[in-house]
């Protein structure tokens, strides 16, 4: 039997852990549950507890799975050695990712998440006129631009456009959204004509035009 002093220590530890566990589970529950009376009232306390390290989202494929293939495409504006500016054709970066994933037992995050989530991030931080909302909007633009430049560099887009040397001056990104055709055994009909969302041209800073990740 422990002496009284140490029994008090143990009792205290028990109480702290019990309270800690209950509060943490309660906060986590409120964070993942739909907005409700309690979480609306104490939203700030919940966020204070959860962010930044306990954030979570388990709604992949819920309430409905994504039913559209969203392709992110990019084209480049290149100034050739002769001083003429040429615009390249569209590069379908999502299709490139898709091909890299095909037959791949271990798809990389660079092929499966990078572009897809960058686009989601962009959409979530921009209004329908493609105007950024807040700091995160600006960050998402820079991020998407840098991915575009990196991919263009890997495709050797400058050479392909001018047939020789040149400098990448600008990029334009667009998304192409197509409905997944309904299963053969269903009687549903959806349009399979793609819809496009075209973003404005972005200037590529000089130091970035060299290609990014080496």
């Amino acid at each position: 039997m422990l002496s009284l002093r140490y029994r008090v220590v143990v009792a205290l530890a028990l109480a702290v852990v019990a309270v800690g566990v209950c509060v943490h589970l309660g906060m986590t529950f409120l964070h993942v549950a739909p907005a409700n009376t309690v979480s609306r009232q104490h939203g700030e306390a919940v966020d204070e507890w959860i962010y930044p390290e306990f954030e979570q989202n388990w709604k992949l494929f819920a309430p409905n799975p994504l039913q559209q293939n969203i392709s992110v495409q990019v084209r480049a504006s290149v100034r050739g050695t002769d001083g003429m500016t040429v615009t390249s054709g569209w590069y379908d970066l999502s299709a490139e990712d898709g091909r890299a994933i095909d037959g791949n037992l271990l798809p990389s995050h660079t092929q499966q998440n990078e572009l897809r989530r960058a686009w989601d991030f962009f959409v979530a931080t921009h209004d329908s006129q493609n105007r950024p909302v807040g700091l995160r909007g600006a960050l998402s633009e820079a991020y998407l631009r840098r991915i575009a430049v990196l991919r263009l560099d890997r495709n050797d887009a400058v050479r392909a456009t001018t047939g020789g040397g040149g400098v990448l001056e600008g990029v334009q990104v667009r998304s192409r959204t197509t409905n997944v055709p309904p299963p053969e055994w269903s009687r549903e009909k959806v349009s399979t004509t793609p819809s496009y969302r075209e973003l404005p041209w972005w200037k590529v800073p000089r130091d970035e035009a060299l290609g990014g990740v080496r």
Partner: peptide
Amino acid sequence: YKIQGSRWQDGTAVYYPLHLESFSPWP
């Protein structure tokens, strides 16, 4: 959350991820 989705209700949900480019390594 899935229970609330129409695709999980009409029994076709699993079909869709299988036909998304990012999640279909074996078409």
